[in-house]
Simulated assay, not measured.
Amino acid sequence: MAEAFVRGEEHRACGICPSRRLPLGEFDVAERPSREFPFSSEDGHRYTAEGVPVCVHPEKVGVPAARYKSDRVPLMGELDLPADEAELEMYLRDMVHGAAPGVLESLIEQASREIAQRFPGVDTTAMLRRAFMA
């Protein structure tokens, strides 16, 4: 059996999220809870009409909303750096500790490029190290 990508109690994913029992790409991620993805009375999880498990908190699992399982959408991370340099360290800490393992490397590469462009006075490597250590 493939290992779930969200492990550990410190992760922000909900306790019943499919990310805690399924690997990347084996469930869909919706923008928010809706009637389109009702709870199953049998197990308390949300599903599409076709029976695909659904996470409804993309910000908690670290991947953008998409029909990963239903439409075999490839997994990509989205970076949205804050406009204010003072918020950068907190943003990176949340990104590092909330991203799905399958997208973390891509997010770090994007952050390295974009931080250097947007905040030229910031030591990107040191900032990312602090984010990992927090």
Score class of each variant (00 low, 15 high):
H57W: 13
Y68G: 04
I16G: 08
A13K: 02
A126S: 11
A49Q: 11
R129K: 14
A111F: 04
M76H: 12
H57C: 08
R130F: 08
E89A: 13
M90A: 14
R12P: 05
Q110I: 04
P120N: 10
A86P: 05
A65S: 11
R130Y: 07
H45A: 15
E26L: 10
L92R: 01
A99S: 15
M133L: 12
T125K: 14
F132S: 07
C17A: 09
E59R: 08
E10F: 10
M95K: 00
E50K: 15
E109H: 09
A2Y: 03
D71L: 14
R46C: 09
G98M: 04
L81T: 03
C17R: 01
P58D: 08
V61Q: 01
R93D: 02
R35K: 12
L22M: 13
I108Q: 04
M76C: 07
E10H: 14
G62Q: 03
V63K: 02
E105N: 11
R20I: 12
E87L: 14
E114Y: 06
R35Y: 11
F37C: 06
P82M: 01
P38Y: 11
D84Q: 04
R32G: 05
V63Q: 01
V6R: 06
A2T: 04
S112M: 12
C14A: 15
V122K: 00
M95V: 02
F5C: 04
F132A: 10
V122E: 00
G8L: 10
F132M: 10
V52F: 13
E89W: 02
H57L: 09
K69S: 09
R93H: 11
E59Q: 10
P33A: 14
A13H: 02
F39R: 15
C55W: 07
D71I: 02
T125A: 15
I16T: 14
V122S: 00
M95S: 00
T124F: 01
S41G: 13
E42G: 10
Q110N: 07
D28E: 06
E3R: 13
G8N: 09
E26H: 14
T48P: 08
R32S: 13
E50Q: 15
F39D: 11
A134F: 12
A65E: 07
L92G: 00
G15H: 12
D71V: 05
F119I: 00
A66E: 05
L92N: 01
H11S: 12
I115S: 05
L24D: 02
M90G: 14
A131W: 04
A134Y: 12
E31Y: 08
A131E: 04
T124Y: 01
A13M: 07
P18G: 04
V61M: 05
R93L: 03
A65I: 07
G51S: 07
E105K: 13
L92T: 00
G51R: 06
H57N: 13
L79A: 03
D43H: 11
P101Y: 02
P53L: 13
A131I: 04
A30H: 12
P33M: 13
E3C: 04
Q117Y: 07
H45G: 10
T125D: 13
L81E: 04
A86C: 06
R93P: 00
P120W: 07
K60D: 11
I16W: 12
A2D: 10
A111V: 05
V6C: 15
L24P: 04
Q117E: 15
